[in-house]
Amino acid sequence: MLVRYLNILSPILLGISAVLIAYSIYLVFLVVPNEAIMGPVQRIFYFHVGSAIAAYCAIAVLLVCSLAYLARREEAFDAIAEAAAEVALLMCTIVLVSGMIWANSAWNTWFRWEPRLVTFLLLWLLLLAYWGLRQFGDPARVAAHCAVLGILGAINVPIVVYSIKLLPHMVQLHPEVVERQGLKDPLFKTAMFWSMGAMVAFQMFLTVFRTRIGLLERELLRRKSRL
């Protein structure tokens, strides 16, 4: 039943995210002026921040669905949690790679022990652990085990963010655009919010699409076992 809804929802979300991504690309590459200090490489920022927000959204979905699975034991929650974790892993990878490209251009180094960089590296490792358990866990128990690991991992996220802020660092180079400095040009702000919306919509599409595949895989296994 849920697969039918997902069949309808998938193309709608794909359409919305395609339009939003196309409009963001238009804004980022054709409308927004070059940033005064960093130049064209600053344009990575729009998709870098958008992917970070999308990763946090996917981790929130993972937490909620893991809790719901333990409470209700419904297969759909497990499939959504699995999809959300994979999408969060993808988004964290985009954040890390785009951040490293930016860092190499702006700071002349691929990686620094900056709070934000370390946060996403650790989130990536946590999600990789979840993926490892999905792949290599005991098939009969993997859903409940993944739900427990999903809860432990997602609860660890704010602690990781907080503890990294406590770490000593000499001079923090990572800009805190949204929290402190703000975006001076209104066009920067417009492009950032559209690209953020585009990445979140894309994350929702990928989650829905992967959930559909996950549910069909489970159905296939059930039918195979009946034969």
Partner: peptide
């Protein structure tokens, strides 16, 4: 024994 460090060590970072 291969799975344990993979799932435990990332949780231990804080």
């Amino acid at each position: 024994s291969l799975l344990l460090p993979l799932i435990l060590i990332p949780l231990l970072f804080p």
